[in-house]
Simulated scan of single mutants.
Amino acid sequence: MKLLRALLVDDEQLALDRLHGFIDDIGELEVVGTASTAREAKDAIEQFRPDIVFLDIQMPGGSGMALASDLPIDDRPEIIFVTAFEHFAPDAFDVEAADYLLKPVRFDRLRQALTRARRRIKLAETERSSAGVDQSGNDYLKEVWIATRGGQVRLEVGMIDWIEAAKDYVLLHTSTRSYLHRVSMNSLEAKLDPRELMRVHRSAFVRPDLVERLERPGKGSLNLVLRDGAIVQVGPSYVKEVLGRLGAKQD
């Protein structure tokens, strides 16, 4: 089994020693570094590129929760929070942490958290390798793994009708339901086949085949009305390209 690289972050040395001892007993992790503040943790993540970060929440100079929220979405290690406080748990899962351990950490819960993190890492690797290659040699995403409270579900890109930004997340709309997924719009644009889902706004992608009619609410503005009645605004800088793609008359 491949050893995963771990970073331990806590301002209490006893907590670090306990965690390090359990990890040594499990034998599935290589501890690449430790940190005692959020600033040190950020620097260590950039330096060591760990697979997993065991992260305290309340530390001098900054919150572990804030640090996790600020890490790049598409290149972030799995986060396992380790804290003495229960009430941060909802926030932990809002930032898609792999697990949430209460101090003093129990060996069985640590092993369970590690199993969960390893599973998530494997799923992410599967997602990256599932991209198909078109004739021009570009890699395009064929499916997306959506994180849920109970695990993850797989969504085929071909089922997505349109996408809209929602702060740090995106909403993936299908004909039956919508899925909340943590990824940036620019990252999606690099991974999606533009023939399937074209970007029409800095906050939206649309499947061209589903555009039923165009609306022009004002000079220079353009809305797309989809088959299911959804109305998607086209960004000013995208209007010419979108009209050309749809074969519609330009002003």
Rank of each mutant, 00 (worst) to 15 (best):
T174Q: 09
E40Q: 10
R177W: 02
M159I: 02
K219Q: 15
S129R: 15
D168G: 04
D25C: 08
E86Y: 06
V133W: 00
V200R: 01
D25G: 07
G64L: 03
I23G: 04
D51F: 02
R154P: 01
V200E: 01
P217D: 12
V95I: 15
P50V: 02
E86M: 11
D56K: 12
S175W: 00
A165F: 02
D17N: 14
R213A: 13
R106W: 07
R195Q: 14
N138C: 01
R227Y: 08
S63A: 06
R245L: 10
Q152A: 10
S237H: 12
T174P: 03
V144A: 08
R227I: 12
N138W: 03
V170T: 01
T176Y: 06
L224G: 00
D228H: 08
R207T: 03
V53F: 02
T176P: 01
G64K: 01
D228G: 05
L246W: 05
Y179C: 07
D91S: 15
A41P: 01
L123P: 00
L3H: 14
A66W: 03
R245E: 10
P194Q: 06
K42L: 14
T115W: 12
N138H: 10
A89Q: 13
G21H: 13
A97L: 08
E78V: 00
S136Y: 08
H181A: 11
L110S: 05
G150L: 11
L7Y: 10
K2I: 13
D56N: 09
R128W: 10
A124P: 00
L224S: 06
D24H: 11
K240I: 12
P77Y: 00
K167G: 11
R216I: 12
D25A: 14
S63T: 08
R111Q: 13
G27I: 07
R227F: 05
R116D: 12
D70N: 03
I52C: 02
F85D: 11
L14S: 15
D74H: 10
T174V: 03
Q250G: 12
T115V: 13
V239S: 05
S63R: 04
E127Y: 07
D11S: 06
F205L: 00
V144C: 09
R213C: 13
V239K: 07
E96M: 14
I80G: 00
R119S: 13
I160V: 14
E215W: 08
R216C: 12
T83E: 01
A98Q: 06
I26Q: 09
S237G: 02
D51H: 11
R149M: 08
H20V: 10
G132E: 08
K2P: 15
V31W: 01
E212M: 13
R154E: 05
D251N: 10
L102G: 04
K122V: 04
R5M: 09
R106S: 15
L102H: 05
L246N: 06
E28W: 08
K142C: 10
L155Y: 01
L214N: 10
L19R: 05
P77G: 01
F22D: 14
G137V: 03
V31G: 07
D43H: 07
D56G: 08
R76C: 12
L210V: 07
T148I: 09
E78R: 04
S237E: 12
V53M: 04
K142H: 13
G132L: 05
N223C: 13
D17C: 09
R111F: 05
E96R: 15
R177Q: 14
K42M: 11
E196H: 14
S178C: 02
I73S: 09
E212Y: 08
R39A: 14
V232Y: 01
